[in-house]
Amino acid sequence: MNLGQHISQRYNQELEDIRNQVLKMGGLVEQQTTHALQSLLKHDAILAETVASRDDEVNAMEVAIDEECTRVIAKRQPAASDLRLVIAVIKVITDLERIGDEAQKIAKYTQRLSMRNTVDDLHSELSHLGVLALDTLRDALDAFARLDANKAVEILGRDEAIDKEFNNLSRLLITHMMEDPRQIKSALRVNWCARSLERIGDHAQNICEYVIYLVKGKDVRHKSLEHIRQKYFPDSPSAAAGMNTLSES
């Protein structure tokens, strides 16, 4: 699908601007999440402080993009793929903002952690889940940037792995708590971080659903992955993406 080629050059520019702003916001949110995880794993209070303080920037970007979308709707009455772009953007930035919030939560936890004298090693268990969530976020943003529905549906398939890792981690933490009740407090905190990472994965999945809506014109929310694959992606996931593949339902 193309964003350009409107008879009005200004309209082209407005949509392109919106898209670029979303990519920029995505970049910032991705950085926030990466830094939050780094600060946690390396007990880096300074980095955590930076993450916590930059959440305002993320929030401001959400508001600015929302305003821009409202303006385009009022001025241009977008239709078809343009309409889907604007709607998808409004939804994507909501999820991005929430990812930003989760990153901020992790950063604040790190700050509290660094105030204590002894640091136990429980939270190193988060690294695997963190990498899974971060990869999902990065790839979801990439699918949005490239308007790649095939990649988006591939990412939807990773939800299970993240959930599984989260459950494994919870079990592990429960074991620790039972073995040594003195660890309950820190284990619970680690569990909150795990929960945040798992939520980041979920938000990234939502972004993928909006990419599919944007490209294919199909709302795939609350549908099983199998159903989505069979109905909208009958060809292999590696099949070429493109607007002209709008399929008959």
Partner: peptide, 15 residues
């Protein structure tokens, strides 16, 4: 107006 199937329709209604 949300998901036209033909590229010509899409082009016309999106200007």
């Amino acid at each position: 107006f949300t998901t036209p199937q033909h590229p010509l329709t899409e082009n016309y209604i999106t200007g």
